[in-house]
């Protein structure tokens, strides 16, 4: 009699990272293996609940035998792999990728870890001069729920994935155009309310640059009242249907200002529908 194992057993694969022999379960990525060792690797387009698209190229590492650097977020580990995350070449590349990025988009609203990496690599925002072409453009406000400021868009494809195959299966947005001129768009740039968008907010939730923002947050920022340090986060369960999605209510001055879901929650993987995301007015109807 043998016990039935829970979950798939995974063989351990050994590799070296920065000279250290380490092991990680088969099927892990180099990034997973690095994180097991508490090695900090910057990422922008990677998110646990989305398929890696490996487009941002800040997570690059050196792999023995590879002519070019390798994106750690999508490269699966193999036995005997020799990885370097701390070489001069890696640092130079990461620094330059950040410098290219910040020269082309407005990164003023990126999260704290990203700011940390940019400091760590001593990113010079002026490296390419003040005349460097950017993707600056008019902010799109077409409804009461979203604000889309594509001058901040780094083309990480996260919103497209969240809207499409990885979560919502709505496919309201895609990357359109080519090269420096490409951007996230509905068909023929149709206004969002006339598109297939169902306002689940999953695109906004995954956006790393603040290009996509809930209108509540945008308006509060505009009037100078948005203050994350004054916000509390309360976890609860969505009251609308029987699925049981976890909600995180971000509350400031006793008002719900944003609703998210934990990315590691096994019901939602961080994704919600329009009701859980925006249907909180009745709570505040005092």
């Amino acid at each position: 009699m043998t016990a039935v194992p829970l979950g798939e057993p995974r063989r351990l694969v050994s590799l070296t990272i920065d000279g250290q022999e380490v092991t990680a379960p088969e099927g892990s990525t180099v990034l997973d293996a690095c994180r097991r060792q508490d090695i900090d690797v910057p990422t922008l387009c990677y998110l646990e609940n989305l398929t890696p698209v490996n487009t941002c190229r800040v997570c690059m590492v050196e792999v023995e035998g590879s002519r070019t650097l390798v994106p750690s977020c999508s490269r699966e580990i193999t036995e005997g792999l020799e990885v370097r995350t701390d070489s001069e070449r890696v640092a130079t590349s990461r620094k330059l990728v950040f410098e290219l990025l910040v020269s082309s988009i407005d990164m003023s609203l990126v999260d704290a870890p990203t700011l940390g990496w940019m400091n760590h690599y001593e990113v010079d925002a002026e490296r390419f001069g003040s005349a460097a072409k950017t993707v600056d453009q008019e902010v799109k406000i077409q409804d009461d729920l979203y604000v889309r400021d594509y001058g901040k868009c780094m083309l990480c494809y996260k919103c497209v994935e969240a809207c499409g195959e990885d979560a919502q299966n709505t496919f309201a947005i895609a990357v359109a155009g080519r090269g420096f001129d490409s951007g996230i768009s509905t068909e023929f740039d149709t206004p969002l309310p006339e598109s297939a968008c169902v306002y689940c907010g999953n695109c906004v939730a995954v956006c790393p640059t603040g290009a996509l923002m809930f209108k509540t947050e945008y308006d509060m920022r505009a009037e100078g009242s948005w203050d994350e340090s004054a916000q509390s986060v309360t976890t609860t369960i969505c009251p609308y249907c029987g699925v049981g999605c976890n909600l995180e209510l971000h509350v400031q001055d006793n008002e719900i200002v944003k609703v998210t879901s934990p990315i590691d929650h096994d019901v939602t993987s961080g994704h919600l529908c329009i009701k859980g995301r925006f249907g909180y007015e009745h709570v505040q109807n005092r």
Partner: peptide, 21 residues
């Protein structure tokens, strides 16, 4: 190169623009 970059990855999408500038 600036014209024909697919635009997917940062080094090439922005790099070809900076190279041309």
């Amino acid at each position: 190169f600036r014209d024909e970059s697919c635009g997917q990855c940062v080094p090439c999408r922005v790099g070809t623009m900076r190279q041309e500038e």
